[in-house]
Every structure is written in structure tokens, then in C-alpha cells.
Design a protein around this nucleic acid. Structure first.
Lengths: 354, 354
DNA sequence: TTGAAAGCGGTACCAG
DNA sequence: CTGGTACCGCTTTCAA
């Protein structure tokens, strides 16, 4: 038995329908697109035929004439399937996909490796080949140069996160404000010696959060703030934290600047025998599922939550607006973060903790 | 300044090239597709033009004539961005995307909610509209009825995981053998009272693993095996485990049948004050990043690892074969699992632990 | 080796 | 209200 060969998906086309209905394909097209100017009986006859034969117009053919595919591309880092930050990618992809579906659009996944200079990144290819109408990118991943290329090429895209000084459409979270909020929170709780762990300052989001931290520290002379800038790669953070905390027993708060470092932070504390929140307050920018539960790790962890779902939805909707073409200037949207107070910073105050 | 409007991606087409090169578009088409029968000089002239103008043929137009899009769809559960099993989805998606890229294909993400009966699932739509040439699905998610529909419609698809008794192309892991291996392992280590925690038997993978467990238990009269079948939803597993282990202090091994339950298992043990592996051996079907490290959770966890990368790659390649059309009968591929011995089952024996 | 023309499955416009 | 036709960008004969 042969099962291969031609793909059997409805070979029937608009011509087929037209022929059977004994009308021109123009008429069929009209009922397909719900246009007026078709006799009631004809319309119904055609509609029935369409339903009976389970006919669906070819998106390809439609695209050819409309010059729009109704597909958008999302540009992910090639290693999005690994590591703890992986929690972010499926979430954002999921929200984008959902938003896209509501707009009758489809999402095409592209990956690229920020580390290496490819001959041609695949996201450029799908753009050039007209496989997609536009792109959703990530400022932290894409980098300034590539973003500039997209701008120069006048490709429609919206970035999640932003590169300062670049003019493009974006939706971003209030990283700076979020970091400020958390720092203030720690200080209000009486912490006086805070360590902030963050990734490389090359990333826009890192810079924003870092500056938020520094802003607040600068306002309180009696509070000491220390920044630990470490690469995202394997456990540098852990070593750095153990190193610093080991030598500075006065540190009473650890502010993890990105979810990537939570485990390192937690392990470091355990390593040093530091009780949370007894000996040290533990806070994290970004929210993770297990933060909320009293599990075997620690007490529930206080965090700054990003509105990931909204981020994806807004990006998708913004891109859709762009594509419709009636956009003047730049769309830039900032989404607020939420401080979720739990137990890891001590003295559980009132606050939304779920 | 208006930035909206027409998408500027190279408006230049094959006609433009032809015109400038003063040849017919047929000729341009020939050089594009690397066909013979074009004068050396003409070819080079055209090639240069293509490069200079950075021309890329429209995938849309090509698809229209070839009736192939070179896109494939992947059908994910709508909540793939949540929960701990989320670790699986980005990994598999990533590997599929990489494999697709090598074949010059693109991946279109579709989601659907197994719980609810949609008017029309979007994966059917993209198929009907010819947005994709074929699908990669997941047996555990799609379910028998929907799989049957795809078969009946003669749509090209390969399933990851399989429904017993259904004839279709698939690639699967040796769930049964994996569960057997782990169970044997526990018994060899001297464990005599093993609890197996698994999800609903409606899922093919659950059935396979369960039968593997039972097979082995059946072979050893002196070993007691107990199955705890629980829903994947929130912490039913935890309650069930605490309940059972609380009443049966003789249990000396916990075999978690799917990664979804690890946390529940771990928390349950902690709750009961059971030391791992002192009081109880802890094993898990599926591998998670943090299993390998001695972290704050437990000792490194012994597991059965699925070859996720291979799974995705094989599925993609198999689908590609199908699409080429030269496939007879059914392609079905089984991938072996790997027992990774670590410390959570006691008596660290020799074995690959990394 | 090359050009001309038909056609893939639709949309859009014009005449009737 | 409806049919006819040109055309979207490319591939594929068929002649020349």
C-alpha cells in the first residue's frame, strides 16, 4: 500500500466551485469575501456548495494578489529551548500565537544565534521571500546593529524591549521602574546593604534595571548598594555571589536582577548557610511559577512580575496596526510591572501574594 | 513623519530582473533554479544583477505554481507556555525548527485546546488553506479522534508519540522499555516496595510507561508495586503521594512517571520527612536540567532521559520524506531512552551521570 | 540558448 | 447582479 504521494488536501478551487455553480469565479469570489452585489439565491447556492465541498480558498493565491500573507515571524534566540530563562520564551510565544489567532494571522518561528555571524539570518530570508508580513523581535536578543538593519530596510517590525536611542516601534516593560520599586521595597523593610546581581550591560533590559537600582540607592546615603555584573553562562553568578557574600557578611539583601540567576542565588545562600529571610532578604526581578509556593526551596519569593501575556498581545496588535498601514510616527508602549510581596524579604507586609 | 504604509521589502520581481537584463523571465527563472541551458555570459550577468539588487524570488508565487509552501505546522497544546512540562515544548520546538531550517523549511506554530471542541481547529485551517504542506502532531495531545481525522483526510503528518492501533507515520520514544529499565534498576538496588506515579491512562505515553512498570513488577514476586494514577492538574499528585506514603511506611522507592509530577513528589517526600535516598529512592521518567546538580532540592536525581532533540529532528525529516512523496507504507521510528544513574536512588553504581 | 505564452488560484475592475 | 478579463510573481512547456 502506498501512502505517499500527492497531498490530498481539497484539490477543489474557486474555479471548481464556479463551474459547478455555473457562475463566474468573480461571483464566487464575491461571496467568499462577503461582498454585496450578489443575488440572494446565487449567494446561497454558492455558499451551500462551499460548505458541502468543504472548500477553503488558498491563502497562497490570495497572498499573491494582496501582497499580504497574514503570517508574522517571531525571532527567537537559537537556544530558546534551554536554560532557566526558557520559562519566558514559551510564555511569550504562546501569548503572541493566541493574539495572532484572534487576528486571523499565523506565527512563523525563526531562530538565530546572536553569537555568530550567519551568511544570512533566516529572519531576513522569510522577510525577503515574503513569507511573512512583519516581525516581532526582542531587543535583548537582536542587538542594535541588526535592529538598525531592519529599520533601514523599512521592514515592519515591533520589538519587545527597546534599544535606547533607536527609533522604532516597540512594547517594553518598565524595567527601570520595576527595579526602583523593588529596591525601595527592600529599603523600606530595613535592609541596608543590598547586592544587585545582573547580566552584561550590553543588554538594554539590564541597563534599565541597573539604573533603576542605582537611582534608588543614590537616594539613600545610609544604604549601601553593590552591583555584581556577571555573564549569563554557567554559574558565574553563583561564584560571584558566594565570593561577595562570603567576604561581606553585612550584606542583608540579595536582589536578583533576572530570572536566569535565581538558582545561583538560592544555591549560593544555601552554600553560605544564610537563612532567607532571616539572614538575608531574597528578591527577584521576574516571576517564576515556583516562587509562589512554599516548597522545598525556600519560603515563597518576593518578585517583580512582568506582564508577559500582555507583552505578547500588545506586540502582536501593534504589529497588526502597522501592517494595516495607518500608523503615523512610532508606536511605543510601556507596560508596568507588579511587585509581588511574599515572604523571602522578611516581615510579610500587606500586599498581593498569590 | 509617516512610517506606516507599504512594506518596503524589495519591490523588485523576476520581471524587473528580466527587463534590466534584457532577457525573458523564463531565462531568469532558469538561473534562479540553477537549471542548465543558459549561456554562460547571460547567466553571470543575471546572477550579478540578482546579487546587486538583492533580489529574492517570492515564496508565495513559487508556492502557487508548485503547490508546495515549504512550511510545516506544529500543533501544540494551547497551554504549552505554562507548567513544568513546559520544559518539553520549547526543546522540541527548537529542535524541529533547527531541522526545518536545514531543509529550507519554516515552522508555523499552531495551538489548540484539547479540552474544548472548537468550531474549527486552527491546524485544520492552515492545512485547508494550504499554508503548510504538512503537520507535526503529538499523540498525547491530539487524541485518537483528531488523529483519525487527519488520517482519513490523507493529510501528511507525522506524530510524535503514537496511538496504538492507528496506522500513521510516527516517531516515538521507547516509553515502555524505559519504564522497564528504571524499574529493573530500582529492584537491582534492592528496593522492594515501589510506587509508580502516572497521569491518566487516556494518554498513550502513560499507558506505555505503566505497562513497562507492570511488566517488571510482575516478574518479581517479592517486589510490591503500586500505581498512583492522578490527573496532571494542580497537586493532585502531591496529595496522593502523601496519602499513600503516609499510610505505607514500607514504601522504599518512588518512581515518578512523568516530569509533571517531580515537584509534587519532592515536596511530598519533604513533607513526610523522608530522606532521599536514605528513606526512599526517588526516580523520574524524563530528564530536567536541575536533576544533574547537587542543589538545594535533593541529591542529583536518577532519571530516564528522552532524546528530545532527536525526536524533533527525526519527525521533521520523516515529514520531509513524506512530502517528497516517495514513501511506501508507514514510517515508524522508535528512539531509545537513556537511564541516567545519579544519587537519588542510593548506592551510586557505575553509570553515566553528568 | 532563449523568448513567448499558458497557467497556478485568487482579486478587481469594467462592461453589460 | 453578473460575466469577462487582466494581473499578482513565478514555473514550465513549446517553438524558434
Amino acid at each position: 500500500m502506498s501512502c505517499g504521494g500527492r497531498n490530498m488536501q481539497s484539490k477543489i478551487t474557486i474555479n471548481g466551485i464556479a463551474k459547478i455553480a455555473k457562475v463566474s469565479k468573480g461571483t464566487v469570489s464575491r461571496v467568499l469575501n462577503n461582498e454585496r452585489g450578489v443575488g440572494e439565491k446565487t449567494r446561497e447556492r454558492i455558499l451551500k456548495l462551499i460548505k458541502d465541498l468543504n472548500y477553503k480558498p488558498s491563502a497562497i493565491a490570495r497572498s499573491l494578489v494582496s501582497l499580504r500573507t497574514n503570517n508574522i515571524g517571531i525571532v527567537l534566540p537559537s537556544d530558546f529551548g534551554a536554560g532557566i530563562s526558557q520559562a519566558f520564551w514559551p510564555s511569550i510565544l504562546s501569548s503572541i500565537t493566541r493574539a495572532a489567532a484572534e487576528l486571523n494571522m499565523c506565527v512563523l518561528v525563526t531562530t538565530f544565534n546572536p553569537e555568530e555571524e550567519a551568511v544570512e539570518d533566516s529572519y531576513k530570508r522569510i522577510l525577503a521571500e515574503h513569507r511573512v508580513d512583519g516581525l516581532i523581535t526582542f531587543a535583548d536578543i537582536l542587538g542594535k546593529r541588526r535592529t538598525a538593519e531592519l529599520i533601514a530596510g523599512r521592514y515592519p517590525f515591533v520589538s519587545i524591549g527597546r534599544d535606547d536611542g533607536m527609533r522604532h516601534h516597540f512594547v517594553d516593560v518598565e524595567n527601570r521602574e520595576g527595579a526602583q520599586t523593588m529596591t525601595e521595597h527592600l529599603i523600606e523593610l530595613g535592609r541596608k546593604n543590598i547586592v544587585f546581581v545582573c547580566g552584561p550591560k550590553t543588554l538594554p533590559s539590564v541597563r534599565a534595571r541597573l539604573s533603576g537600582f542605582k537611582d534608588v540607592i543614590g537616594k539613600y546615603p545610609q544604604v549601601k548598594g553593590k552591583v555584581l555584573e556577571v555573564p549569563f553562562s554557567s554559574h558565574e553568578a553563583q561564584k560571584a555571589i558566594v565570593g561577595h557574600l562570603g567576604e561581606n557578611r553585612a550584606v542583608d539583601a540579595l536582589f536578583i536582577g533576572a530570572v536566569n540567576f535565581v538558582m545561583d542565588g538560592l544555591v549560593a545562600c544555601k552554600h553560605l548557610g544564610l537563612a532567607i529571610p532571616g539572614d538575608i532578604a531574597f528578591a527577584c526581578f521576574d516571576e517564576l511559577d515556583f516562587f509562589k509556593e512554599r516548597n522545598l526551596l525556600t519560603s515563597p519569593i518576593t518578585s517583580i512580575a512582568q506582564p508577559v501575556d500582555e507583552l505578547g498581545r500588545e506586540a502582536m496588535n501593534m504589529l497588526h496596526e502597522l501592517l494595516k498601514g495607518d500608523v503615523k510616527g512610532f508606536h511605543q508602549k510601556l507596560l508596568p510591572t507588579t511587585l509581588i510581596v511574599r515572604e523571602s524579604c522578611g516581615e510579610a507586609k500587606a500586599g498581593r501574594a498569590n
